[in-house]
């Protein structure tokens, strides 16, 4: 069974936000209206964390793209009362929107604030295939989050099965990795020793958020800076 993981090279990443938009477009993530966005309800599955540190002129601005980390021991699935979020055998932490009752316990439990919530019914044009028809449109009151574009995995699997071959490295990539102009996001099967992700995840530059929490995130960051 493959285990999907992501490596983000922060030394290559410039923080251009292309991943955030690619993700929003791919996954039909709604746009919050201005007042809502300003009050902290803008929805990003792939968020860009920006912090400025250090005193002038030795300023350092860290820009870190943050998807869901798809932890191997996810704290969010543990607390879901209805099993609307769970970790599938391939290590994807999935969100089943129609099971979700909107208690937001998973959001409170996620140490990385990776989940977003539909505070209002998002506006879609009735019946029109707005955006990506491969991804469902969510409704008011459910939690959603980065899915590693699992719908792409499903279609890749279908093709691979039809052609009777294993999934190749780089065949299944989420929208963010695909659109990154800096090629900073690499995606693949971390259990496959031939894969780029496997190689990169063993780099001396690697770090993960929340490693001390023991949740085993599957998003690895590469950075020459000692602390990211």
């Amino acid at each position: 069974m493959p285990k999907w993981a992501m490596v983000i090279d922060l030394d290559k990443c410039t923080g251009c936000d292309a991943c955030a938009v690619a993700c929003k477009m791919e996954n039909n993530v709604p746009i919050a209206d201005p007042a809502e966005a300003q009050s902290g309800r803008a929805m990003f599955w792939m968020d860009m964390m920006t912090t400025t540190e250090g005193a002038f002129p030795n300023t350092v601005t860290k820009r870190v793209p943050k998807p869901c980390f798809h932890c191997d021991d996810p704290p969010c699935t543990l607390v879901c009362p209805v099993g609307a979020t769970y970790r599938n055998p391939e290590g994807l932490v999935a969100q089943i929107y129609h099971r979700c009752i909107g208690c937001r316990y998973c959001m409170a439990a996620c140490p990385f604030t990776a989940k977003v919530y539909n505070w209002y019914d998002p506006k879609w044009i009735d019946g029109a295939e707005v955006g990506n028809p491969d991804v469902s449109r969510r409704m008011v009151g459910v939690v959603e989050k980065c899915s590693f574009c699992s719908h792409r995995l499903m279609s890749v699997k279908e093709t691979a099965h039809r052609e009777d071959r294993p999934i190749m490295d780089g065949e299944y990539v989420p929208a963010c990795a695909e659109s990154c102009p800096a090629e900073a996001i690499v995606f693949g099967d971390i259990e496959n020793e031939e894969s780029r992700v496997y190689r990169l995840s063993r780099s001396y530059r690697v770090m993960r958020y929340g490693e001390d929490l023991g949740v085993k995130p599957k998003v690895y960051y590469l950075s020459r800076r000692t602390e990211t």
């Binding site: 769970y86 599938n88 055998p89 994807l92 999935a94 089943i96 929107y97 129609h98 491969d134 991804v135 469902s136 699992s150 719908h151 995995l153 499903m154």
Partner: peptide, 8 residues
Amino acid sequence: NDCLACHR
């Protein structure tokens, strides 16, 4: 019967 196989 993995949820992700049919739910999206």
